[in-house]
Design a protein around this nucleic acid. Structure first.
Length: 227
DNA sequence: ATGACGATTTACT
DNA sequence: GTAAATCGTCATA
């Protein structure tokens, strides 16, 4: 361990159903150590559960086992980083037992530490408007870019890695603020598309897509906007 | 070998 | 709201 003081989630935490792990990850801190030693930290505010061979939205649907999906068949607590849309990476935590290819996609963080570095990683030459904190990690590919999570971080053991791990909640999560919705971007998954497998902290303005109800409760004017 | 398709983000109308 | 960017993966042949 790079830091004797820091606790981290252990194998028992990850070795459960992804539907249990996903909500329990809300409020936990994802920690990333850069090659230069800089520590980046963000609190998880949005996750999605993928249920494995039966789940039409999962990469492991039907038991697909290829070089890409191989990490999903490892033990709980293994990272699974995949490349998509020709330009983005997304970060998952493998759950359950070995050979049960279930995982949780981490979709958004609230930045806590190393924000200057995150801004640097997320900046591009042709960006017009300045980046706000809420633009840094509010999406699965955004947070990978901000934390520099790449294929080099694929198939890592988050229980023993010196560069990537997750720490338990420092504060409890308000149960009423923890919402569940259908998953994002899986329209072709047919009957699996509407299933409530996305968890998010509705009080956070760092999620990828704020729920309508959260908009309504956080902005009293929204309720009258259409009148 | 080939073609269709993304667990997304960004800029623009 | 819509569309472009951009390429590895997977199924089919």
């Amino acid at each position: 361990m790079p830091d004797g003081q820091s606790q981290r989630l252990d194998h028992a935490f990850y070795a459960r159903a992804s539907t249990r792990v996903a909500p329990d990850l809300i409020g936990c801190d994802l920690v990333r150590i850069l090659p230069d030693g800089t520590r980046l930290r963000g609190t998880i505010v949005e996750t999605e559960a993928y249920l494995g061979v039966a789940d039409k939205a999962a990469h492991s649907f039907g038991g697909r086992r290829t070089p890409r999906t191989e990490p999903m068949y490892a033990k709980g607590g293994t990272s699974y980083v995949y490349f998509t849309y020709g330009m983005h990476y997304c970060f998952n935590v493998v759950c359950g037992k070995p050979d049960d290819p279930v995982a949780v996609l981490v979709r958004a963080l609230e930045p806590r530490e190393g924000i200057a570095k995150m801004i640097d990683h997320r900046s591009t030459s042709r960006r017009k408007t300045p980046l706000r904190d809420r633009d840094l990690c509010s999406g699965p590919a955004r947070l990978c870019q901000a934390l520099q999570i790449t294929p080099a971080e694929n198939a890592l053991d988050l229980i023993s890695s010196d560069v990537l791990w997750i720490e338990p909640r420092r504060r409890s999560v308000n149960k009423r603020a923890l919402m569940v919705t259908p998953r994002v971007g899986i329209q072709s998954a047919e009957e699996w598309a509407p299933r409530p497998l996305r968890w998010l902290l509705s009080t956070s303005d760092h999620v990828s897509r704020p729920p309508a109800s959260a908009i309504a409760t956080s902005n009293p004017l929204a309720a009258n906007a259409h009148a």
